[in-house]
Amino acid sequence: MGQVLVLNASYEPLNITTWRRAVVMMLKGKAESLEHDPCRQLRQGTNLPTVIRLRQYVRVPFRQLPLTRRNLFQRDNHTCQYCGSRENQLSIDHVMPRSRGGGDTWENVTTACLSCNVRKGNRTPREASMPLRHVPRRPASSLSFEARRQIHSGHHQEWAKYVIGA
């Protein structure tokens, strides 16, 4: 808990911060509270914020989400992209096998259960007659990716209206 979604003045998600930092920004007049937790209060009787918006627009450089095993499984919703199974142990499959020039990129790796990965082997999905359920793509941004993870895990449902694709 204790996490606060920070929106730019234009209502674009900027960051996820602690409630302490959010309260300090509000007290300094740099941000306003848009959503709050009715169950948690500060000593003064003020509800803790869960979404704040900056009063001044801030330009932020784009950061790409790193390709990690955890991020890949999250992108694919912990589901085999060949058979749709969520029960079996998952592994990482290269759509174009590495031995045939395929690289470690968001567009070339996908989640597969062990049996599908072995069955596909050193072939492309087309050669193995195993079509992918979703075309692998790079996630939009690391912030929206993390925010969607928080929303789908049951935390911070109120963030959904501020995060595209949540």
Rank of each mutant, 00 (worst) to 15 (best):
N88M: 01
R148V: 09
L90N: 15
G154N: 00
F145R: 06
Y57R: 14
R100T: 12
I92K: 00
I16H: 11
P131S: 00
Y82G: 04
C83D: 06
W106H: 13
L27D: 14
L7T: 12
F62I: 01
P66N: 06
Y11R: 14
V95W: 04
N77A: 12
H134W: 02
A147P: 07
L54N: 06
L42G: 15
R69A: 05
P66C: 07
F145S: 07
P125E: 01
M25H: 13
A147Y: 10
W159S: 15
T68H: 00
R43W: 01
L132K: 04
E32D: 12
Q64H: 05
S153D: 07
P131F: 03
V6F: 06
V163E: 10
T50E: 13
V118P: 02
H36G: 08
Q89P: 11
H78N: 13
R53S: 06
D93N: 11
I151M: 07
G84E: 04
R40E: 15
I164F: 12
R133D: 03
A160N: 12
G102R: 07
I52Q: 08
A9M: 01
R123L: 10
Q3P: 06
E146W: 10
R98F: 07
A112D: 00
W106I: 07
F73Y: 15
M1L: 03
L67H: 03
T17C: 09
D93C: 11
D37N: 13
R63S: 14
M25I: 01
R43A: 15
Q56P: 04
R123N: 05
Q74H: 13
R119L: 03
R149N: 02
D104P: 05
A166P: 14
G165A: 12
A140L: 00
L27V: 11
E87L: 12
V60L: 13
L48Q: 11
M130Y: 03
C83T: 07
P136W: 02
L42D: 14
Y57N: 12
N15H: 10
L65N: 12
R53G: 09
G121A: 00
I151H: 01
W159T: 08
L90R: 15
I151F: 04
A22T: 09
V109Q: 10
R100Y: 01
R100M: 09
T18E: 11
S10Q: 10
N117T: 05
R133M: 10
N108W: 06
C80R: 10
I151L: 04
M96G: 04
Q74D: 06
